[in-house]
Simulated assay, not measured.
Amino acid sequence: MEQSSVLPQNIEELTAEYQRLWPLLPVLHANIGKLAGKDAVKACAKRLGMLNKQGGKIGIHFEHEVDMDVFQDYLIYMHRPRGLSLVRQMLNRNRYQQGSDERMLLENMAQARFSLFWVRELHPAGGCVLLDVISGDKVFVLDQTMAQQSEVGLLIALRLFPFRNAWMHTGATMVFGRIDDAAGLQPQGHRFNEQEERELNEENIRRWRQIIREMEA
């Protein structure tokens, strides 16, 4: 397969900076998650079918360890009271100084988008090229682990945010099998609005959880 034109020329520089910054991401996610009140958590769990009633008490039921990552990702990026995600709310609080790594990451994270992607190319030194099967965009995503453990042809759902002249993902990845022939993919060339993105996110979470149930049955 011919290499994509989206492959950055400065891949080594980007990879080094990505490796330095990646440990900050789960810390930021945890701090952002603390902004969520009980009503927000309950509302998101209800939308995702994760509420469970036991002993007269209603709580969140995680069927799989990765459920927690997927739920947190949805909560802090897609729960948007008054149109502001928890990520955007944290950014607006100006908790981190201008010029800090955390501030830079937050500014980029506020531009995150969720979609369904096809793994087009692997570049073990730094990441992989993904095809957005909704919009048709091709993007280079920094992630050495994904590049080394993934396979060309995998269909995955995840959230990306811009980073320099490439992209990073938020860490909650759902795998839906493999499609070897890209000719069967017909991107819609469509940009989702907020409601459409949320519906796609919820649909893929429900579908992914069902796949996990069937695998473990």
Rank of each mutant, 00 (worst) to 15 (best):
R93P: 05
R178Y: 09
M109Y: 07
L154M: 10
D181F: 08
A182Q: 10
M109R: 04
L105F: 07
H123T: 14
L155D: 06
A125G: 11
S100P: 01
S85E: 04
L185S: 04
D137F: 09
Q144Y: 09
A172D: 05
V87S: 03
M90E: 12
P81A: 07
V152Q: 08
G127N: 07
D132T: 01
R80C: 03
G171S: 05
G127P: 03
R159V: 00
S100R: 07
A183G: 15
G99K: 05
T173P: 11
I134Y: 12
V141W: 08
G136F: 04
W118V: 00
L106A: 06
L131D: 04
N92F: 10
E107C: 08
A183N: 13
A147E: 02
S100G: 02
E102M: 04
L158T: 12
G177E: 13
P124D: 01
D180C: 15
G184Q: 13
F176I: 03
I179C: 12
A183I: 14
M90K: 09
Q97M: 15
L86V: 05
N92L: 12
I134N: 13
D143Y: 09
M109S: 00
Q111N: 12
L142I: 04
R103P: 01
Q144C: 09
P81G: 04
V129S: 05
L160P: 06
D132L: 01
S150Q: 07
E107S: 02
V129R: 06
F140E: 02
Q188A: 15
G153P: 03
R113S: 15
L155G: 02
R159G: 00
N165A: 12
L106T: 02
S150D: 04
T173H: 10
T173Q: 04
A112W: 02
N165Y: 11
A110N: 03
W118Q: 07
D143R: 07
D180H: 13
N92T: 11
R103K: 04
V175T: 14
